[in-house]
C-alpha cells in the first residue's frame, strides 16, 4: 500500500474497480491501455476506446481511466471536455446530426436545423426528455457535394429540406412521449 487516501476517495475508487471487475468492457479497455503501456500520452486514444465501448464517458469511467493511467482526475476531465467528440452524457435512442458546415449552411442547413429544433423542442447537444432523440450538429461530414446533409442514426442523407427532416423525425417522436 503506497499511501492512504482520504477515506471517501479510496472508497470511491474501490467501488469503481469492484464494478469494473464484473464488466467485460472494462477488460477490453484495460487491454487497450496495456497496448499503450499505460502511458499518459495515450489518454485521448483510451478515451476514444472507452466511448466506443460505453457510448459515453461517465465520471466512474473517467475515474477508472485516471486510476489506470496514473493521472490526476482533473487532467482526465479537462481533456474529455476539451474535445467535442467526447460526450459525457448518454445519447437518446435515435440521433439526428445536422451538418452545419459552410457548404450545407449556404444551402439552407440552418432552416433544416430550425425545423428539427422546433419540432423536437431541443437544442443541439440536447436529448428529448423521453430520451428518444438526440440532436447534434456537425461541422462538415465530407458530403458537401450533397448539401445540405444530415445523418440519421448513422446513415448520411443527402439534400435535406425542413420537410424531409421532419418526416424522418415523425416516426421517432411518435414512438416517444408525444
Amino acid at each position: 500500500m503506497p499511501l492512504s487516501l482520504p477515506k471517501d476517495r479510496t472508497k470511491r475508487v474501490a467501488a469503481v474497480m469492484e464494478h469494473a471487475s464484473g464488466d467485460k468492457r472494462f477488460k477490453i479497455l484495460e487491454t487497450h491501455m496495456k497496448r499503450h503501456q499505460y502511458k499518459a500520452d495515450a489518454l485521448i486514444e483510451v478515451l476514444h476506446k472507452a466511448q466506443e465501448l460505453f457510448g459515453f464517458l461517465d465520471n466512474d469511467l473517467l475515474l477508472f481511466v485516471a486510476y489506470r493511467l496514473k493521472l490526476p482526475p482533473s487532467r482526465v476531465y479537462g481533456v474529455a471536455t476539451f474535445y467535442h467528440f467526447f460526450t459525457l452524457k448518454p445519447h437518446g435512442k435515435h440521433t439526428c446530426v445536422v451538418c452545419m458546415g459552410t457548404a450545407c449552411y449556404v444551402k439552407g442547413a440552418d432552416r433544416v436545423l430550425a425545423a428539427v429544433q422546433d419540432k423536437a423542442k431541443i437544442r443541439p447537444g440536447e436529448t428529448t426528455p423521453d430520451k428518444s432523440v438526440s440532436l447534434l450538429i456537425a461541422r462538415c461530414i465530407g458530403a458537401c457535394g450533397l448539401a445540405p446533409a444530415a445523418v440519421y442514426d448513422g446513415t448520411i442523407n443527402a439534400r435535406q429540406t425542413p420537410e424531409s427532416a421532419l418526416q424522418q423525425l415523425k416516426g421517432w417522436l411518435t414512438n416517444g412521449s408525444e
Binding site: 485521448i44 486514444e45 478515451l47 476514444h48 476539451f82 474535445y83 467535442h84 467528440f85 467526447f86 461541422r139
Partner: peptide, 8 residues
C-alpha cells in the same frame, strides 16, 4: 495514427 476528437 492519432485520432483527433472534434477540435478545429
Amino acid at each position: 495514427l492519432r485520432l483527433g476528437a472534434g477540435a478545429f
